[in-house]
Design a binder for these strands. Structure first.
Lengths: 213, 213
DNA sequence: TAGATTGTTAATCGATTAACAATC
DNA sequence: TAGATTGTTAATCGATTAACAATC
């Protein structure tokens, strides 16, 4: 079993993309080695946390030098599955949905957006980049035909649950919820929330409490 | 001191917007009371966690009935600071930046996007909605004039740190980083990462490990 | 009343940090 | 060699869960 299939604690998984971003920058700057202390400093962690996290990575550092950046990057990419290709559908051809589709970063990371859906008849048939906006009724057929695994919810909050249900029925394995609404899904479907407004609330709470406590 | 100034554990803060989204939906459906058990079921938590979280909210439930939805909503909005108004600047007038500016949800939640900046001379002077795209060189002056507190980084990964530095120098109190890059800021500036691609990696890891363990 | 649900305390669980022998 | 850094163990810390008396 490849190491990327081993279950890693969720909080560690959340840090891995941050390590990867940092390591890619270091590599671009020509660095060859990085210590747990320096990496921790960059990311606001302790060196202990970094070393503990890397025990999930199936590779070892070197005394006195730290971690070989090329190897570290390879291992991070392996466990994050950067080498694999995922087919993605987007529900919602509003501003956010369009932005995602036109964002080149997704394709570069292995996430290919294969179709976009909307419920507004005025939008259906229109284009976003190379994609034609399809009616939501076509979701199940399209997911099957294009072998899609992931659905991104970029719809208004009051439509989120209904669209999520349709995505589950269509056979998607994972949903990324960008709507500021809670959605439920059966246990075999993974759901991750990534809501910018929720993040803004976290931020304002931090700002408000800085210096108070 | 209003309760919203009391420091709440970060993991609780992350759940509060989810409670709020859920409670708003319940209220829209005409519900008046909600129990910790039902709320937990909706959000995939335990009822103990819900009750523990609500101890930070400075209000009490009622035996046999649960929590009064109107009051719960008020308290959640108070602690999240939904009543306050924040002035926001966006760096990066690409697809993501434009989508944020055109997204009505922000203004409705009290986040007013007051200015947008880019470094590309071809974009400067162009418009996004009602805003004119300004040169990044104007950042500090604009932040001061418009009394902005929050900066959103919607720039490419390789520009993120430089723009973050400029935002810190301009006097912003908090940064929301949407770029897939790590940024550092001095301790008096709060930083929250909300990176859709990092969320997608979390999601694919969940999908890959489902049924393996 | 009987029974459901709260708030709170204590127990459990997991994550982070500290410490240090092993290593190069 | 001397000293920096690892991997790992043990200690600490914090978050979640369980349990239950109090309450309506």
């Amino acid at each position: 079993m490849p190491s990327r299939h081993v279950s890693v604690p969720p909080l560690v998984i959340q840090r891995l993309p941050r390590y990867l971003a940092c390591v890619q920058q270091l590599q671009a700057n020509g660095a060859e080695w990085i210590s747990s202390r320096l990496l921790a400093e960059q990311l606001g962690l302790t060196s202990s946390t970094v070393r503990q996290d890397f025990t999930h990575l199936d590779f070892r550092g070197t005394s006195r030098r730290g971690y070989a950046i090329t190897e570290l990057r390879d291992k991070l990419e392996l466990i994050l599955g950067v080498d694999r290709r995922w087919n993605v559908v987007v529900a919602g051809a509003g501003n956010l949905g369009r932005a995602l589709i036109l964002h080149e970063d997704f394709a570069r990371r292995g996430f290919r957006i294969r179709a976009v859906f909307d419920i507004d008849p005025g939008k259906i048939g229109g284009r976003v980049g190379e994609l034609e906006i399809l009616p939501l009724a076509d979701l199940a057929v399209t997911v099957g035909q294009l072998d899609c695994q992931i659905g991104i919810l970029a719809v208004p909050a009051n439509a989120a649950q209904e669209v999520a249900d349709r995505m589950v029925d269509a056979g998607l394995s994972g949903l990324l919820n960008l709507a500021l609404a809670h959605i439920t899904a059966p246990p075999h479907v993974a759901v991750i929330d990534s809501r910018i407004i929720a993040s803004l609330f976290e931020l304002t709470h931090l700002i408000s409490t800085r210096g108070d406590g």
